[in-house]
C-alpha cells in the first residue's frame, strides 16, 4: 500500500509518501522534519483537525432594564452576535460534524473570558472547547 499525503503541520506543505512494508510497518518519506512522519501516521490511522467555530451568545437581562432593551443593545453594530471558539487540541476528524452540531446548539452566556471552557470533554473525547475572545 502506497499513499501520498501533504503534511499540514506547518505552512511548508511537505509532500509525503507513506508505504506499508511486508511486515506491516509504515515507512514515511518526503518529510523535512519528524513531525511529518508523525502526521502521516496519524492522518492514515486516526486523522484529527483543530476545529474552530462560533457559538450564539446570550446577553443577560440587566436588573432594571427590560429584556427588549437588552435585545436592542445586542443588535448594536459593535455587539458581536457570535463568540469564537476552538478545540483545545486536534479533534477526531470523523466526529467533527457531530461536534459542530453540538456547538451550534450552545448558547454562551455573557460575559465570557477568553480561554473559558464553553464545552468540557466534548463528545467524551477529553478535549475541551474554549472561547477565543472575551465578550461583555
Amino acid at each position: 500500500m502506497r499513499q501520498e499525503l501533504i503534511c499540514i503541520t506547518c505552512p511548508m506543505g511537505c509532500r509525503l509518501v507513506a508505504e506499508r512494508t511486508g511486515e506491516g510497518e509504515l515507512v514515511v518519506s518526503g518529510n523535512r522534519c519528524p513531525r511529518g512522519a508523525a502526521y502521516a501516521r496519524e492522518e492514515l490511522f486516526a486523522p484529527k483537525r483543530t476545529v474552530t467555530a462560533t457559538c450564539r451568545v446570550s446577553r443577560p437581562c440587566a436588573g432594571d432594564r427590560s429584556c427588549a432593551a437588552a435585545e436592542t443593545a445586542s443588535q448594536a453594530l459593535d455587539a458581536p452576535r457570535r463568540v469564537p471558539v476552538r478545540t483545545s487540541a486536534a479533534f477526531p476528524k470523523d466526529r467533527v460534524p457531530e461536534l459542530l452540531a453540538r456547538l451550534y446548539e450552545l448558547e454562551v452566556e455573557l460575559p465570557v473570558e477568553r480561554g473559558a471552557v464553553v464545552l468540557a470533554d466534548a463528545l467524551g473525547t477529553g478535549i475541551d472547547v474554549l472561547a477565543t475572545r472575551s465578550l461583555k
Binding site: P11, P84, R86, T132
Partner: peptide
C-alpha cells in the same frame, strides 16, 4: 476565527481574536 496565527510571534497556533 480560524487558527494558525502567531506561530512566529508567540510560538503557538492561535485564532485571530486570541
Amino acid at each position: 476565527v480560524h487558527n494558525g496565527f502567531g506561530l512566529i510571534e508567540f510560538n503557538e497556533e492561535l485564532s485571530g481574536p486570541e
